[in-house]
Nucleic acid binder design. Structure first.
Length: 850
RNA sequence: GCCCGAGUGGCGGAAUGGUAGACGCAGCGGAUUCAAAAUCCGUCGCCGCAAGGCAUGCGAGUUCGAGUCUCGCCUCGGGCACCA
């Protein structure tokens, strides 16, 4: 065995795996199945360290499960539609399709050297007509199932990307991709009725016990269930048709503290009043105040008194003014509220500004003093109701709310309703590079779904990107078609689908990626669900919630079995790969960032190669703009894939961020080299070498198997790797006979194989392992070797460790006590004091209390 | 503001309520070398010559025993948000 040279061994073993078809997923009735999936990448053209970490984690699980006797499905695909392709076409010319498929080829070529155990025969790209045609078929099924509808809606319009964004895609009032300030526009849009499933999507979160608690909580908050009271105020002086004003409140117990009613500037009543120039002016002012968090945060609460009044439901003689207010949202509740300044800070600020009454409903102690700020205790807290109208005078907010709803229902002025924050999913995008919505607009029949035999509705290739907007609208002939119903000339829909639709079912498609239907029952039944899904926390809400909805829709339309409505049985969200940032400033004082490879790191500082001092900024997510990126290809070229894989899995727990350091990468390489030379040394040992350490090494081997197995099972890869370091050191120092040494190093190879599969194969074959290491069964630890005959027990005196003794594992507590008290250190520390109590925890510890 | 999560050596991090700091990095000492790199061996929380003392953000509490459990604070990170 020569020097460790990954550039030689890695391609060799990759070829061997491919020749053996080692990773081809097969439905095997004799084996349990295991489906492991990492969130598929967007084909940007380059892989980054985050990909390496993500796919290595999945690969560790896949290889481990495969060795453990499972029939494993571990596929890979491309989330290939979306705007970067169009942006590239606009910026650099060329065609989105060519750009995308070119990137896929590039990225695949970069992923292959990582030696991932992926079944590439199942590869798919969402921009393949073979894929999106099936998506169109499901869209039509969902239309028939009543899960799709059109409506005119005020949408978030991204003026740069010239497209509509889902609410979920608006971040701080800006488009999530372009970063442009979002405007409001009204368009007719296609929607999925995800809100039909609000209750179910919320309730089913409880069953997702193998999901991070954090993600479940984020989804629950997003769905946002609330219980409250809806009732109508009778209006006085309102225009015709507005005799009643519906309001919704989650605090009906504060009804006696009402001091005004307020409506959103988008409320129909506000619109009806816009004939008044003063109202029109005020409403326009409200709409201008953009939606960015910064603006909202600093925006002053403003209101306009309409002069209309409403009658309090509990006292017809009590009238409240109706204001239009900028802080009332039209799309939550009914777009109208009653304000209770005493118990809501916003209402308090508003009332203070416009001199409206502030009357407490409840207080902490039953007094009725004037308030300096709103009193908003937890609903679970008990308070004294001084203007309550339902239930006990002293009760919790929750009880007060329940009593108020009961009171309203009993007296017929309102009813308890449950509302959700979750809104329907608008999927229309005015873009070219997406899945065409398969419907036709017919002058006589209206909106008609395309016939399934005409699918896929394929994107035309001959389009231009010289103007903003949707190229499909401008295409000379693509829109022209025959009405699927009456055959008359008609026009195609030009909206394409949100790319989140594409990623909402790809996991199901992987079970039968070439089928002529979206899924195949036997395949879906065998492979679903995804047993382990791995990806970034950034998809905690959107992608995962949409997928959960889509799986339900696919079940309803017959494309997935009932057991697959929660498609991801276990979810793991991995942390990012971070790196230090290196900064200098140019003559004009602007920051200049430098790539890690241009930096010379020395003790206490860093310089450029010409000696210029560089400022080192603490580790942050790798980003092109900060230039703190390490190209996986460079790492593979200098150290090999196994080193990159080993490093990203070591040190940090997988859910936490890992900092990439060149020292760490070199350390990983050094360790692999050490394993390599250890393997050589053992290979050169004479076959008849005898040593004294056989039993000891056998025990260490068993312990390593046990620890690494537990580490992988528990997603504690860093701990598995720590055990492997320790085991390597043990073997290196061991003096055992040749067969035991060989057994140990072969076991080491197997235990390392999920992380460093190429090195593992090389060691395995060199030490006479049968077949491929990748196909060898996972080693089992002999339970008898996991327990030691003697144990070392620390002895504490009053909780402080003072001595330790070594006793046989099964020694009776009384006997242990005797030995402990006779120990010379113990005697010395006790100094004759009487022992009050002695606690012996078998196999763990002894504590002497004086 | 609300909801989560986390604070352990110089650093990344280990630790079913039971010997705090596994494993790795960096550091230090040594071997090898003409020398260096590489490699190997040893050492490595802080104070102290030592005995020993002090140490898991801070302060209490529960316990024979607390990094771990409870309560109150502080700091940092993440998510949500004029959501009625």
């Amino acid at each position: 065995m020569s020097r460790y040279d990954p550039s030689v061994i890695e391609p060799r073993w990759q070829a061997a795996w491919e020749a053996a078809g080692a990773f081809t997923a097969r439905r095997d009735p004799l084996k349990p199945k295991y489906y492991v999936l990492e969130m598929f990448p967007y084909p940007s053209g380059r892989i980054h360290m985050g990909h390496v970490r993500n796919y290595t984690m999945g690969d560790v699980v896949a290889r481990y499960k495969s060795a453990s006797g499972f029939s494993v499905l571990h596929p890979m695909g491309w989330d290939a539609f979306g705007m970067p392709a169009e942006n590239a076409a606009m910026e650099r010319g060329g065609h989105p399709k060519d750009w995308t498929y070119g990137n896929i080829a590039d990225m695949k070529a970069q992923m292959k050297p990582l030696g991932l155990s992926i079944d590439w025969s199942r590869e798919l790209a969402t921009c393949d007509p073979e894929y999106y045609g099936q998506q169109q078929a499901m869209f039509i099924d969902m239309m028939e199932a009543g899960l799709v509808y059109r409506k005119a809606a005020v949408v978030n319009w991204d003026p740069v990307d010239m497209t509509v964004l889902a609410n979920e895609q608006v971040i701080d009032g800006k488009g999530w991709r372009s970063g442009a300030a979002v405007e409001r526009r009204e368009l007719v849009q296609w929607f999925f009725k995800i809100s039909d499933y609000s209750e179910e999507l919320l309730g089913a979160l409880d069953g997702l016990t193998n999901w991070p608690e954090k993600v479940r909580l984020m989804q629950a908050n997003w769905i946002g269930k609330s219980r409250g009271l809806q009732f109508a105020f009778e209006t006085v002086g309102a225009p015709a048709g507005f005799e009643a004003l519906e309001v919704y409140t989650t605090r009906p117990d504060t009804l006696m503290g009402a001091s005004f009613a307020a409506i959103s500037p988008d409320h129909p009543l506000a619109r009806a009043l816009e004939g008044d120039p003063a109202v029109a002016e005020f409403v326009a002012k409200c709409r201008k105040g953009g939606t960015s968090a910064e603006e909202i945060e600093t925006a002053e609460k403003i209101g306009y008194d309409t002069g209309i009044r409403v009658k309090h439901p509990l006292d017809p003689n009590w009238e409240l003014p109706v204001w239009i207010a900028n802080f009332i949202l039209m799309d939550y509740g009914t777009g109208a509220i009653f304000g209770c300044p005493a118990h809501d800070q916003r209402d308090f600020d508003f009332a203070t500004k416009y001199a409206l009454p502030i009357k407490p409903v409840f207080t902490a102690d039953g007094s009725d003093a004037a308030l300096a700020e709103a009193f908003v205790p937890m609903k679970s807290e008990k308070v004294h109701y001084i203007r309550g109208f339902a239930g006990e005078a002293v009760q919790t907010g929750d009880e007060g709310v329940a009593a108020a709803i009961a009171h309203a229902e009993a007296n017929g002025y309102g009813k308890g309703v449950t509302k959700f924050r979750l809104r329907d999913w608008g999927i229309s995008r005015q873009r070219y590079w997406g899945c065409p919505i398969p419907v036709v607009h017919c002058p006589t029949c209206g909106v008609v779904p395309e016939k399934k035999e005409n699918l896929p509705v394929e994107l035309p290739y001959d389009v231009s990107f010289d103007k903003p907007g949707n190229p499909l609208d401008r295409h000379p002939s693509w829109r022209d078609c025959a009405c699927p119903k009456c055959g008359a000339p008609a026009k195609r829909e030009t909206d394409t689908m949100d790319t989140f639709v594409d990623s909402s079912w790809y996991y199901a498609r992987f079970t039968a990626p070439r089928a002529t239907t979206p899924t195949v029952a036997e395949d879906a039944d065998y492979w679903m669900n995804v047993d382990q899904y791995i990806g970034g926390i950034e998809h905690a809400i959107l992608h995962l919630l949409y997928s959960r909805f889509f799986a339900r829709a696919m079940h309803k339309t017959g494309h997935l079995p009932a057991k697959a409505v929660e498609p991801f049985s276990a979810l793991f969200t991995q942390g990012m790969v971070t790196h230090e940032i290196y900064k200098t400033t140019d003559a004009a004082g602007r920051p200049v960032y430098h790539l890690p490879e241009d930096i010379i790191r020395s003790e206490g500082g860093a310089t450029l190669k010409d000696g210029t001092k560089v400022e080192v900024i603490p580790s942050a997510k790798m980003s092109k703009s900060k230039k703190n990126v390490v190209d996986p290809m460079n790492i593979i070229a200098s150290f090999g894939a196994d080193t990159a894989r080993w490093f990203v899995m070591s040190d940090s727990p997988p859910e936490r961020d890992v900092e990439w350091t060149s020292a760490g990468a070199e350390a990983a390489f050094k360790h692999l080299s050490r394993v390599w030379s250890l393997c050589s040394r053992i290979g050169e040992m004479p076959a008849d070498h005898k040593g004294e350490g056989d039993a000891e090494l056998a025990r260490a081997t068993a312990r390593a198997i046990d620890e690494v197995t537990k580490g992988i099972e528990g997603f504690a890869f860093n701990k598995a790797i720590a055990s492997l370091y320790a085991f390597t050191n043990t073997i290196a120092k061991a003096n055992a006979s040749t067969p035991v040494m060989k057994e140990a190093i072969r076991t080491l190879a197997q235990l390392m194989s999920p992380m460093t599969p190429h090195m593992a194969e090389e060691v395995w074959s060199y030490q006479g392992g049968a077949g491929l290491c990748a196909q060898a069964p996972w080693p089992k630890a002999d339970p008898a070797l996991l327990v030691d005959d003697t144990v070392t027990l620390p002895i504490q005196i009053n909780g402080k460790r003072r001595a330790e003794i070594s006793v046989p594992k099964d020694m009776a507590a009384a006997e242990v006590e005797k030995i402990a008290l006779a120990n010379e250190d113990v005697v010395r520390f006790l100094a004759g004091q009487p022992v009050k109590k002695i606690i012996v925890v078998p196999g763990r510890i002894i504590n002497v209390v004086v």
